[in-house]
Design a protein around this nucleic acid. Sequence first.
RNA 1: GCCGCGGUAGCUCAGCUGGUAGAGCAACGCAUUCGUAAUGCGUGGGUCGGGGGUUCGAAUCCCUUCCGCGGCACCA
Length: 657
Amino acid sequence: MISLTFPDGAKREYPVGTSGADVAAQISKSLAKKAVAVTLDGAMADLAEPISRDAKIEIVTRDDPRALELIRHDCSHVMAEAVQELWPGTQVTIGPVIENGFYYDFARNAPFTSEDLPVIEAKMREIIARDRPFTREVWSRDEAKRVFAAKGEAYKVELVDAIPADQDVKIYKQGEWFDLCRGPHMPSTGKIGTAFKLMKVAGAYWRGDSNNPMLTRIYGTAWQDEKALADYLHRLEEAEKRDHRRLGREMDLFHFQEEGPGTVFWHPKGWTLFQELVAYMRRRLKADYDEVNAPQVLDASLWETSGHWGWYKENMFKVQSAGDETKDERVFALKPMNCPGHVQIFKHGLKSYRDLPMRLAEFGLVHRYEPSGALHGLMRVRGFTQDDAHVFCTEEQMAAECLKINDLILSTYADFGFDEIVVKLSTRPEKRVGTDAVWDHAESVMSGVLDQIAASSNRIKTGILQGEGAFYGPKFEYTLRDAIGREWQCGTTQVDFNLPERFGAFYVDADGQKKTPVMIHRAICGSMERFTGILIEHFAGHFPLWLAPTQVVVATITSDADDYAAEVVDALKAAGLRAELDLRNEKINLKVREHSLAKVPVLLVAGKKEAAERTLSMRRLGSNAQTSGALDEVIASLVDEAVPPDLKRKALAAKAA
RNA sequence: GCCGCGGUAGCUCAGCUGGUAGAGCAACGCAUUCGUAAUGCGUGGGUCGGGGGUUCGAAUCCCUUCCGCGGCACCA
């Protein structure tokens, strides 16, 4: 007999080999009907799996959140069956569950197109309606390989080979069709239901390696019921509405054009937003950093010394004289990084240990020849501005500097409303420079700092990314979560024991000896262009007043109010607000509509009455309520609201003191 | 870079199996002075991404190239 413990703590005895299905059936008929799986000591398992040991058991019903993964996984199997039924000869590879859905990668001579999706969906509905049971078998490796090889499933043969020797080769059947799979699955295909949809086709490399052949991936989404599916599709639509490329056009912030692939044409409004962000960052740096500016175009030899030429030559812009007659054959590069420039500044003149830590910041415009397929609006461009800085310090100062940077990064994010942050330590990659001893040391200091960060706040999550470090040193990566739950990796702190040495940078220590400083690369926003894009999406274009490109529009109702409205705009501008005047001979309805669509935060309406009383009717974006106020009071309250968060904090602190 | 899809007026898009382009919005003009998400009427606007080919004839078919979109790979 075995003893099973239920969630309520009750224990019951069952014969060895009892299945979850048996247990459910003994509890109640309805539970047996709803059950799709069990958890044994927390691990999900098939309902039909014979239980041979004491365990904590829980019956998982179809409406349990944990069943969602099973629905999606089963759905990917059904999709694979549908595809093979429709196009015999198509090879199946892998089909995992992902966030919000699943995919399956197929190998087929002619790739699928989006027109195939409804056809596959229809076939899937047929298979689900057949409601054939999922059954599990364990095969020997040789048998599995023989069967798959005989079916022409070369990829599956490779997958069987990849299964660790101590694990069984499990096969799941759904009627005639079967797949290599570790499970678990629900009892039958009918449990999947109808709340699924195939979303898109895409190419994907076999095993994620670009040296391998490209397979066709079909993405799908699946949910417990139609409502959840509809909600998900609605969320996608909403996300699309806040796409920064769309808002960039609608709000007249920036554009791209063919002649400048991956480079931004900033329009007046977009540039105002961008500069407001830069101004904010610049204020935040003032206390601790010195701002510098290093050249845009530097001799290739400098990049050879830094190692970038060797590692990233393919991704750099080469610059040369374009003149046909020129004798100057020198090869320059458009800077892809600011660090070599900053090292030159550090090296210029003798530095003492007393000068350390030396923190050099630059809003450096860098250019990288990104692969064409990687370009994506402001998020991935070929020319961008880094809020970069390099801290030259001693080894002893390193940990403290990392923590100081951590404080700056987290407080910056908080000012934009990002307070769920994940900090991850990336350790040595395979392709790297420097000795193992140096890496050992750097990683141990960094992991100590990571522990301190983790201990400092319970809102900050930490983790490790094995092998993801930069070629010259380990790094921290800061990931923030936006208003609709998407994660963006922005900030980074990278310890570098290599570059200063490569460039022969040194300082004179207290004992009169030359020593190589440690260099810490750090960025907060990362790419200012990308961060601007993130902010556009995070706020859905509905910026807080201090960031909004146009903060206020004063719109008239009749031309009788024109003079007054003009006076109001002058007063707003004099008070430092970005204000525009709308005197057009149009109805107020049209004006309200247009400025609302342009996402202007504040609309001040002036009619005959306001002009006579020297008041304004205020309407805030996103609300149709109107409030009336005296001119001076309205301006004062808007001025107060438009103070950036860092200055507001400062003013509060000054008041308190 | 790789796989698939796309590029027609400022924007969103129609244009089937080849017969030299069309709508809505926007713009411009005129009228309207009208209290919180579209006032009415009128007018102009496109070498259909570029290049080449097939054809009597190409937005439409083929090749090529650039750019974009969705993924994959990459991201110092």
